[in-house]
Design a protein around this nucleic acid. Sequence first.
RNA 1: GUGCCCGUAGCUCAACCGGAUAGAGCACCGGCCUUCUAAGCCGGGGGUUGUGGGUUCAAGUCCCGCCGGGCGCGCCA
Length: 588
Amino acid sequence: MILALDIKSQLTDLIRAACAAVSPQASELSIVLERPKNAQHGDYACNVAMQAAKQLKRNPRELAQAIVAALPASCLIGKAEIAGAGFINFFIGIGAKQAVVREVLAAGVRYGETDRGRGQKISLEFVSSNPTGPLHVAHGRAAAFGASLANVMAAAGFVVQREYYVNDAGRQMDILTASTWLRYLQLAGADVPYPPNAYQGDYVQAMAQEILAQYGARMARTVTAVMTNVPALKEDACEKDRETARDARIDALIANAKQLLGGDFRLIHAHALKVQVDDMRADLTEFGVDYDCWYSEQSLYDNGLLDQALGKLIAAGHTYEEDGALWFRATQFGDEKDRVLRRSNGQYTYFAPDIAYHASKYDRGAEVVIDLWGPDHHGYIPRVRAAIAALGRDPEKFIVIISQLVKLYREGQPVKLSTRAGNYVTLRDLRTEVGRDAARFFYILRKSDQQLDFDLDLAKSQSNDNPVYYIQYAHARISSVFERWGGDRALLQDAKLDALTNEREAQLLQTLLDYPEVIANAALDYAPHALAYYLKDLAGHLHSYYNAEQFLVDDDALKLARLALIAAVQQVLRNGLVLLGVSAPERM
RNA sequence: GUGCCCGUAGCUCAACCGGAUAGAGCACCGGCCUUCUAAGCCGGGGGUUGUGGGUUCAAGUCCCGCCGGGCGCGCCA
């Protein structure tokens, strides 16, 4: 929706008109309005006079004076004064601000929406964890960030497609399949060794149980058969050699599994995939994170999109063969080295289907593609960008947001995590421990490219230390006032607002006015944390107001005006919390 | 070694793409509950924005050097 009451753009128009009257050249200037930190500097400050002073060869303060003098008459501006080096400070009349209350109450859940995104189609991919085990706390951050960003962008007028790329075709899934089978063999009584780089979690055991229950001993094989041609580990060698040996060992086990099981390998594979994807989906749904599309990597092989994408690259001459492998000339598109698409063993790299996947995002209508990745993938960005460029798409329309590491703290000490032992903290653990609201909120409190220290005790604490409760409490307090009042909230829509005149009321009105722009900026900057800080701010102003003034007063006009104001505040608090996936409780 | 990201109060972090006296919370000190929820409010101390230069009316923000930290640099994903 487009606000009737957009003070900032109305003011911008007035200033532009004034500039045009002062000088034809000045009419070309871009008018930037900013909310001063210092209340003495008014509600909006404009620096256009300082920007223009040089090219107009005029003194900035004198120029500012001329612009102010040329301002068209408007009931919006209570006062405009020159300050500092040439700022024009605007004080908005309280009457103009009061109208925001009616605006908020009329718009309701839609207050804050703008058309800044102009309906641009965005593909936003986030989490996309391998379906080889439960989501852990880093995925949780990506989930919370991606979901909040998608909500904020949608509110700002973008059309957002939320995507999860399911890596159901790669080697990791084969390892999970083999892991499940090995556990199954152990359950069936076979004394097979379990490799250290197979999946260690208990969920593998659980899947093995299910396979055993469903298919009985039909997939059992002798240990000798399973271990045929499986090379030994080299635990006394150096780290690099040990890793190579481990890789070779698990690859041999996978090859044996495929050969010994035939079609049954696909059965275990399909079972494991379904269990893991269902589990992740349930986990995310419980976290308030939903997707428009779960996109299968395997489908790119099956429906020919992979061949199509590679065919395009080959036809355009962007590939070559060397050492038996197929290479992409990534260096011609800004990457630091060329990249392998198809290995000499005939297998495609992870990169190859990923190119097809990204191509499909654009082919399905995305104007801008945004990927949210972990920090360990940032070296991968130039490669994908190069491929997008090679396919004739604008690489500027491909944006990667890096979601940095999450460190957990308990009692001031970092929580030790060891992926190898399989005892990492899952998202589900975290949700169980601190609750969904605190988890969602804490996760987006930091800029995505900054490491996040997650204080478990703080997130759990039901105290004033906890910013989630601080905001929710403001919302609940307002509910409590209305419960005490007992009147009909619909009456507030038409309440007279003239009585809202004191400093705290002016502050609240202005903060409500800021909300749509906060949403828009958070969307354009990919920075949902800005919304969290705004809500803390709004809640703070409400708490101050609550403490300073009585709402349920004898003076009827004053009472209704104040109730209308806090109803509007509550609406905005709720709207903001909804975008962040945090509940807005009526009582606490 | 090379590339990217980061360095702001004792701690965790903001700062509206270059604006005015760098702001919150925690911690510390002092006040406020017979009045709509004290999970709250009011007040106080605390800073050479890692460092040295540069750009300009104006730099935490932009450019260069250095110091310190994180991550990446596979025919892995």
